[in-house]
Simulated assay, not measured.
Amino acid sequence: MKKMLVVGSINMDIVNKVEKHPLPGETVAGSGVSYIPGGKGANQAVAAAKAGGAVTMIGAVGSDVFAKELKESLKKYGVNTDYVITKNISSGLAFITLDSQGENTIILSGGANTELTKEDLAPYLNRLENYESLLLQNELHTNTNEWLIKEAEKRGVSIFWNPAPAYKVPKELLAKIDTLIVNETETEIITGLRIQDKETAEKAAKLLIEDGVRNVLITLGTNGSYFYGTNGETVYTDAYHVDAIDTTAAGDTFIGAYAQATMMNMSAKEALQFASAAAAISVTRFGAQQSSPTKEEIEAFLIKEKK
C-alpha cells in the first residue's frame, strides 16, 4: 500500500453551540461546550486514514492536559503518531462557535504547532523517501513549511498542499507543488482573482498552472469543486446536497479523502466524487475527526447516489 506523510497542526477544538453568531459587542447564550480533537493537519490525516490510507503524522502537541487525548485520537483512527513531538508550551487550540445552521466561526491559537521548527523535522528527512506523498497545510510556521516543501521535492515526493490560512505564495514555491488545493478565498489571496463562478475558477487555475503547479483543485463549497491539470484535463464536480448539522471539518475531510483517492490510483473525476461524498457525509455529523467517514461508508454513499 502506498504511504502518506502528513506534517501539520494538531489542535483541541473548543466548540460552543449557539442559536446564532453574536454581532460585535453582543452577548449570546450558548447551549453547550465540547472538547474535540482537531487541527487541519490532524483532521486531514484522519480523513485520509479512514478513507483507506496508510498515514503517518508529524506534528507537535503541548505539555498540557490536552496532549494525550490529541495523540490518542489520531491513533484511534489509524494514524501513526510515532513522530509527534511534545513542546513545553500549550497545545494548539481552536475556539469554534457553531450556529443552528451548522455554520462556524473559528479563532485559532497555534500553541505548539507554531513551535515546530526545521530543526525538529531534520531528523526525519531521511525517512521522506519512504512515502509516496506529503500532505501539508499552513498552520505551521511559514518558514518550516517552505523548507519542507523544498526538501520533499529534492527527494521526489509528491506534494499535496492546502495553503490555509493563505498568503501570497512565491512563484518558485508554487512550481514545486504537485497538487494545490484551495478554496475561493485562498485562491483570491494567491492569484489576486476573485472566484465568482466556474469561469473565474478556470482562469485562476490556469494562472496557477502557468506558475508551475502541476494540478490545481479549487473547492467551491456548496457549488462543488473544480480541477485543472497540467495536461489540460478539467473536471467540475457538483457537491452532494445533504442536511448539514456541522461544517467544521468538511474541507479537511474533502482534502484528506481526495489525497487518499489519488493514492488509490483513481482518476481526477473519481477522486473528486470520492472526496465530495466524504465531505457530504461529514457535515451530517458533529465534530471534526469523528465526523470523517470510512472508505466503506463513502463507497456505500456513492452507490446510493447513483441509483
Rank of each mutant, 00 (worst) to 15 (best):
S100V: 12
S100Y: 01
Q101W: 00
G102V: 08
N104G: 05
L108C: 15
S109G: 14
S109Q: 10
G111F: 13
A112N: 09
T117A: 10
E119M: 09
P123E: 09
P123Q: 12
P123M: 13
Y124Q: 09
L125F: 06
N126G: 14
L128N: 08
E129D: 10
E129G: 14
E129Q: 14
N130F: 15
E132F: 10
L135C: 12
L136E: 05
Q137Y: 06
Q137L: 12
Q137V: 14
H141P: 02
N143V: 14
T144C: 03
N145E: 05
E146G: 13
E146R: 13
W147L: 09
I149H: 04
K150R: 06
K150E: 04
A152C: 04
A152L: 05
K154Q: 13
R155L: 10
G156T: 08
V157H: 01
P165D: 07
P170N: 08
E172H: 08
L173V: 14
A175D: 08
A175C: 10
T179Q: 04
T179E: 02
V182Y: 01
N183S: 13
E184V: 04
E184Q: 06
T187V: 08
I189V: 14
I190V: 10
T191M: 01
T191Y: 01
T191H: 01
G192E: 03
L193A: 11
I195E: 02
Q196H: 06
A205C: 11
L208F: 05
I209Y: 09
E210F: 02
V213H: 03
N215D: 08
N215Q: 05
L217I: 09
I218C: 11
I218L: 10
